[in-house]
Design a binder for these strands. Sequence first.
RNA 1: UCCGGGAUUGUGUAGUGGUAGCACGUGUGACUCUGAAUCACAUAGCCUAGGUUCGAAUCCUAGUCCCGGAGCCA
Length: 552
Amino acid sequence: MMEHKSSSNFLRNIILEDLKSGKADHVVTRFPPEPNGYLHIGHAKSIILNFELADEFKGKTHLRFDDTNPAKEDTEYVESIKEDVQWLGYQWDELFFASNYFEEMYNRALLLIKKGKAYVCDLNAEEIRKTRGSLTEPGQPSPWRERSVAENLELFEEMRSGAFKDGEKVLRAKIDMASPNINLRDPVLYRIAHASHHNTGDKWCIYPMYDFAHPLEDAIEGVTHSICTLEFEDHRPLYDWIVRECEMENVPHQYEFARLNLTNTVMSKRKLKQLVEEKIVDGWNDPRMPTISGLRRRGYTPEAMRNFAREIGVAKADSVVDTKMLEHFIREDLKLKAPRTMAVLKPIKVVITNYPEDQAEMLEAENNPENPEMGVRMIPFSREIYIEQDDFAENPPPKYHRLYLGNEVRLKNAYFIKCNGIVKDESGKVIELHCTYDPETKSGTGFTGRKVKGTIHWVDARQAAPAEFRLYEPLILENETDDGTSFLEHTNPHSLEIAHGFVEPTMKTSKSQDKFQFFRHGYFNVDPLHSSADHLVFNRIVSLKSSFELPK
RNA sequence: UCCGGGAUUGUGUAGUGGUAGCACGUGUGACUCUGAAUCACAUAGCCUAGGUUCGAAUCCUAGUCCCGGAGCCA
């Protein structure tokens, strides 16, 4: 399909100006996830932004794992992140791990110490917090702030060699305890953690903090435009300080944009993790999750996600994008790609009383009327078929165009049928319909003798394949409020509905991740985990829009 | 309260001194072997108040409201 062009945004304008003014003569961006969880659609926005910005200016984009905290990170996440980035359609020019720079970072820390810009502090976490001051009051200098360079050097080397326990000492930058920007009040640069790291193993027992590590990583890699989210805005002066004082050759610049929020969705790793751990969903790739792996399993395509990301734009104002926008782009992408087929989700049997019992025929059906190149298929038809329960009403509501006693409708790709009788069980529930068909009205014959208001879908009762359908509703009912309630109280108990019905016989050969439009229902994806040849499972990606609502 | 940001139709986003545009949504009609799609039309906006200017969403002044920041997390 045609890819949408993204509209102008402030980051593009900045790059344009930088190139024009000579502040930069090329562009290098990076996507720097911490491998401590799965990527979600908010990350997709960042990935698409970074890769496309670089691409537009013939630059490069690195994938860099920001793995400076061994306690939280794991190679499992490294692999899933790589997979998700590639699935989205991007290939990094370079793959880096921050942990591979640990020696370089250590040397830069040494430089800071020698310049009198960093010191080893013996205060514990609690004491550091207490002396940091508040939003309105300055902090107090640490009693260890004036240690000699020689002593600092010796102590820092001992920290590295494992002479101290976790938390016993830290390395701090010596900046300004009275700064109105709290990030500048002698921030911690290194902490001691006797933990083994997914990449460096037990080589290190001191690990750099984000504020120290990130600017160095960008500088080492020659990143020109370091794009991050708004909450790091306050860190920018520190970022610049580190690059300057560590005397880095390349000088990257940090720019911040607003993270993505979607209606009826939570987007923080912490909350998503909670949904997984409290078993509200079935893992990180549950089709209800806004994770890239969840959306993929639901049936979203990379094209739809890219077009969505381009359309929502990039800005600095906090915002919440309507999920309908995302849905629009998957419908648009699948419209010409997905074959149409008929599926009855909640079946009721119809007996066509004037159709000979021993007869059957094959009828031709277009695979996609909007895309004739997709050809045709043959579908079986005989005396007994299934239709959708909702397509029959004993007491039809106003403007009901479907089947009811005495009314005639078209069976898609087949004949007109008229309802003459209903069969009920002891409880009074309608369990079967008796109809008659008109052979004159066969689809494709150009019959114009009379018109019907409704066309309904169906499957042949003898040959249809049983199938399971998973219908999703938003996981979160209300958007976050400030009333102090946990978002878990707003989860939708009916976010998953499982239906059992039938699909056309040709669907038996469908493969994992195949996508279809079930006539009049919506777009569905073959579930990669639960579907098999003898037990078909389809995830509803998104329903079709409908201007008619059945009254409850 | 200190520091840093932000405010353009219902939602998201362009516009950087010269007709406020795009997308989604919503509504109406046409068409229809999908109550879909498509097509047509409609819908509605510059936070407030002053000022500069022939002319302000844009520049200036003063407000208002919203978001972020006090991890040895990122």
